[in-house]
């Protein structure tokens, strides 16, 4: 699987491509391959083919089907008026204020929560990595928020921030209902996201920390590097691949934010994310055309972000380990 540098998110397409690419590349770059090597490669492809085929079957079909639905006027309320409308649904969605508001909200939540999580996660990872006493206890307790079901956690946040039942509501402003105002509601949603997924970030970063050789750090400190210099000049560069994996995972995950918003505000006061608004149109509105259009647009956003990650961070990005060879 090391040849392709396509994005992980478009894995369905990538899988299909991958089976075509090796021959070309093989001809172009690896002419010197011996017969044995060729056989080995062939076996490799044969071995991963079943998995790839299953992947394509379970991911490509729904993706193509929602794309097909997005080109139609298809509203369960009006079954007789189903018709093919080309890209008219895309025009409708992309010229709609609600969609762009939700898009902005999603981007804001993603950006803020991922940045904060990276910083906190790094701190937590270092603590978990360095702890000498009660290491198991420290690691376990740090992972508790990640172990709690999101909806359950979201409900306890909701009650905590509801005046009358909650212990947090009156902490910030004596008579306010923070979940009913846009800015504070968004703040609470982001807080809930960060609380919930920082441990995940920390876990991935800790794996990266384990890659940093102790000798390197010792050598740096012999050379008189301060703690900060060791962190930025030694640890971070070594950890870069792990950081990118963590960032990519969390960004794509944050982009799909749904549970917390659904429970905390249900999208009131313009706090809907793109997933929320797609759900509202698809499930509540029964509008398969518009709803699928939104799903496809979310898919494209995810694909673009994954692509940018891989291109922007180049060789160190996950999935493209060619440069390191």
């Amino acid at each position: 699987m090391s040849i392709s540098s396509t994005t992980p998110a478009t894995s369905a397409a990538a899988d299909a491509e991958e089976r075509a690419i090796p021959k070309q590349r093989g001809r172009r770059r690896r002419v010197e391959l011996s017969e044995g090597k060729k056989q080995e490669r062939k076996l490799g492809w044969l071995l991963c083919a079943p998995a790839a085929i299953v992947m394509v079957a379970v991911t490509a079909y729904p993706i193509l089907y929602s794309f097909w639905l997005s080109l139609q006027r298809y509203d369960l309320k009006f079954p007789d008026e189903r018709e093919f409308v080309w890209f008219s649904n895309y025009v409708t969605v992309l010229t709609n204020g609600y969609w762009w508001t939700a898009f902005g909200v999603t981007m804001l939540i993603t950006l803020v929560s991922v940045v904060v999580e990276l910083v906190l996660g790094m701190g937590l990872a270092i603590i978990m990595h360095r702890t000498l006493v009660g290491r198991g206890l420290v690691r376990t307790s740090a992972l508790i928020p990640y172990g709690i079901v999101t909806v359950v956690a979201a409900f306890s946040w909701r009650y905590a921030w509801t005046p009358g039942t909650g212990y947090l509501a009156n902490l910030v402003s004596p008579e306010g209902a923070p979940l009913t105002e846009r800015a504070s509601a968004l703040g609470i949603i982001i807080l809930a996201e960060i609380w919930k997924t920082t441990p995940f970030m920390a876990l991935l970063l800790m794996a990266g920390l384990a890659l940093v050789p102790d000798d390197l750090l010792k050598a740096a400190s012999m050379d008189g590097a301060t703690w900060w210099q060791r962190f930025t000049k030694v640890m971070l560069p070594v950890m870069k691949p792990a950081i990118l994996v963590a960032l990519l995972f969390r960004t794509l995950d944050a982009l799909r934010v749904f549970d917390n918003i659904y429970v905390l505000t249900n999208g009131a006061n313009e706090t809907s994310s793109v997933s929320m608004i797609a759900y509202n149109n698809l499930i509540k509105g029964l509008n398969l055309g518009i709803g699928s259009t939104m799903s496809v647009l979310i898919f494209l956003t995810v694909a673009i972000i994954a692509f940018i990650f891989v291109k922007l961070f180049g060789t160190a990005a996950p999935g493209s380990d060619e440069g390191r060879r």
Partner: peptide
């Protein structure tokens, strides 16, 4: 505005917030 958005809802072109 309502006339416009209600008509869009009837024509399955309305986007729900």
């Amino acid at each position: 505005e309502l006339r416009k958005s209600i008509q869009a809802a009837i024509d399955s072109k309305g986007v729900l917030p």
